[in-house]
Design a protein around this nucleic acid. Structure first.
Length: 195
DNA sequence: AGCGGGATTTTCT
DNA sequence: GAAAATCCCGCTT
């Protein structure tokens, strides 16, 4: 398989709420240190932006959110509830604090590896932001990782037709509850909370 | 199927 | 010192 050209990642250099639905159907390839490979399809995401009260970047750049203000296509990893890592794909280019939270993925290859890592099977292995982070081995070691190459790669695809995408309020936030910045693939069984 | 609580530590006030 | 872009388990319907 030939390496994708850099131009294929240019769609990330746009506002997060426009990028988010375009990430649905794209894939992630994870190559672990032992050489084993896992591939998944993105089926649920949420957009966050510095203009948005619910975003970690709302109150400006901090030590934690520095990567959100950096280049598009890098990985913003945060730690929450004392035990969970979650991952965002940074969007909007340098200077603007924005990203797209990965909320659910569908395993394509390496399902046995995923289920071993998660100690569970089926949809429960990857139908949540902290679940997929654990499944893909994402923690603070991956902070700021460039998703265009290396051990975790984004593989872009053409956008899905709008009829296959559902927009809804985001999950687990206390502010900006009415903003419809959660996007998921209609009827996909790996979505964390179908409406 | 749905609710309620506990886990556990980083980050910001 | 409190909240957190969550998950899991156990208990009740």
């Amino acid at each position: 398989m030939p390496q994708k050209s850099l131009a294929d990642f240019s769609f990330l250099d746009a506002p997060s709420w426009e990028v988010a639905p375009q990430l649905l159907g794209c894939e992630l390839e994870r190559i672990f240190d032992d050489g084993s490979v896992v591939r998944v399809k993105i089926v649920e995401v949420e957009a966050y932006d510095q203009s948005d009260e619910a975003s970690h970047s709302y109150r400006g750049k901090t030590m934690r959110t520095e990567t959100m203000f950096g280049s598009s296509g890098h990985l913003y990893v945060y730690f929450t509830y004392g035990m969970h890592y979650c991952a965002n794909i940074v969007t909007s280019g340098a200077g603007r604090g924005a990203g797209v939270l990965l909320r659910a993925v569908e395993p394509i290859t390496g399902i046995d590896i995923i289920e071993n890592r998660r100690k569970t099977t089926g949809v429960n292995a990857t139908n949540g932001p902290a679940k997929l982070a654990q499944a893909l081995g994402i923690d603070f070691d991956m902070r700021g990782h460039d998703l265009r190459s290396g051990s975790l790669r984004l593989i872009p695809y053409s956008p899905l037709p709008r009829s296959q995408i559902v927009a809804s309020p985001r999950i687990g936030i206390s502010r900006a509850k009415d903003t419809l910045w959660r996007f998921y693939i209609k009827d996909n069984s790996y979505v964390s909370k179908p409406n």
